[in-house]
Structures are given as C-alpha cells and as structure tokens.
Amino acid sequence: MWSGDELDLDAYLERIGYQGERGTPGELRPDLRTLYAVHRAHTAAVAFESLDVLLGRPVALDLKSIEDKLVHARRGGYCYEQNSLLAAALERIGFEVSGRGARNRTRGDSVLAVTHAVLVVTVAGEPWLCDAGFGFQGPREPVPLARPGAEVRQGEWMYRVREEEDGVLVLCLLRGDTWRDLYAFSPQHYHPVDYVVLNHYSSSHPASSFTGRLIVQQAGDRVRQALVGRELTRLHPDGLVEQETIGPDGLLAVLDREFGLRLPDRDVAELVRIHRAED
C-alpha cells in the first residue's frame, strides 16, 4: 500500500542517521525496538516544513518525489510527506501499517476539518500511534493505543491518549501542569489516495494554514522550536514559552542552525524576498 518495495531503504536509513546494533540495515526486524529506533531517528533528523507551499510549488506524494526531496535533497516536509515516507520504510521492514485522518485540536474550541495524516502500526497484535509529521508538539516516539489514559514519558515530555465516543482517540501533550489536546482521530482507515485529496486542500486552499505563511518546526529532545512567519517560538517541558522575531537577514542562519535546512540559491532568494515583504 505504501510503495515500500520502491524505497531506497539504505539511503533513508543514512538520511535519518539510523544505526542497528551492528550498524547494518539487514538486521532490521518488525519489532518494537526497531519501531522506536526508526521513529525517533526520523523525527530527530527531518524537520517539519511547508516551504514548497509558500513558494507556490505543488507538493507531490508519490514515493519517488518524496524520497527525492526528503532523503536525497535532505529537505523536510509536512505530515503527508513525512508519514508517507515513514510508512514506506516501516512497510519495507515488514511492519503492518495503516493510515488515519486526524482533526487538529490545538486551536481552542474551533472545529477544524480532518487534515492531518497519522499512522497506526501493529506490533505483536498491539496498535501504536506513529506520527513524524505534527511539528514541534508531536511525539518523538510511538505512543501505545491499547491502553487509553496511560501516561507515556518521552524524554522530558509526557503524552497520553484518551478515548471519546464512537472510538475516537485523542492525543494529548502535558504542557506545564495542563494536558492539552493535540488532535483526534477515528478508527476509519485512510489510504494514500485519501492523503492526496487532503494534501490538495492543505497546499492550495486560501483557508489552509500553510498557504502564504512560512512554517518550519522541529521536535527536539528538550526544546521544541517553531518558526511561523517571523516568530520563532521555543517551547519547554515546564510550559515556558520563549519568542524571538527573525528578520530577513537572520532567516537563512536560523533555518540552517536550528532546523538543519540548507536550500538552493533560487529558493533562498525567493524566501528572503517573501520574508522581507512582510515589513
């Protein structure tokens, strides 16, 4: 389903900095240890970004295009790209992977459309939420789904999944002393073609949060960072939020230093022009 047989697995593993117990991809197994290691390496290495949308370029979801961009060009991507790539890699390793569509809940009581792509991976009969594409608040590691309400520590960050009516599951993040909903998803299975439809809205509709706005994010071990427009936000586990304004002259250094993104000259010039136009 996820075109895992077409993926250059060695190149992907090199891109995310994955090393097995003996440093060879051949030792990968569809077990929980491998799932944790691949998920964590992916989220550490590949930034969340939607720069192609800002630059007015189509976002292709066929595996070759995603591999060329995120693996070989060492770019980042947003949820449809990130989780499609992760799904292909996990499928290639031998995992059972299915998709879900999620509804963002980070904007208060507003009811938003289902536009977020997540994965459910089954290991030894137990489902795990896997998500490399929710930006700086997203999980770094798989989150168990078989025990709703259980608190899961990932470094200095805490997550839990709670269950609502009709089998809806909600991923929550502890910020300071408060549990906050990140997104909710139903048991309905989504296929790659469903993400093509959601991607069309997210990359082109005027109401999409990605159109006309620079968004780059990274879920670090301790500090989570998000550059939205000119505002660089640093989120700490204790709930502390720091903000800094990034002008056009500092944009490229921040993209490189904080998010590991180095772009072609033509992209750099256009991004700086857009950033400067916000004055």
Rank of each mutant, 00 (worst) to 15 (best):
L198V: 10
F136I: 00
V216N: 04
D279S: 15
R40Y: 08
G101Y: 05
A88N: 00
L55R: 03
R276S: 15
E164V: 01
L198C: 10
R29E: 11
R257N: 13
Q19A: 13
A73S: 10
P58V: 09
V53A: 09
L70T: 02
A88C: 00
R160N: 11
E278Q: 15
C79G: 02
D8G: 00
S3E: 15
V123A: 12
G138R: 03
R257S: 14
D31L: 05
T233N: 13
T43S: 12
A102K: 03
D5I: 00
R105N: 11
L240W: 08
V38H: 12
L54V: 05
R147C: 05
L173T: 04
E96W: 06
R29Q: 07
R100F: 11
L54H: 05
R222W: 10
S65E: 09
D249W: 04
L263F: 11
Q218G: 12
T245H: 03
D62M: 11
G229Y: 07
E96L: 09
H39K: 01
V216G: 04
S98C: 02
F136R: 10
F48E: 08
R147W: 03
V46R: 09
E6S: 12
P25R: 06
S50Y: 02
Q217L: 02
A45S: 15
S209E: 14
F136D: 08
E258T: 02
C79S: 06
V121M: 09
S110E: 12
W2P: 06
D221Q: 14
Q217N: 02
Q225K: 14
A132G: 09
A47Q: 12
E258L: 01
S110D: 10
E231Q: 15
E96A: 14
T233V: 12
A226T: 10
V223G: 02
L129T: 02
V241H: 11
L35V: 03
C130G: 09
R180L: 02
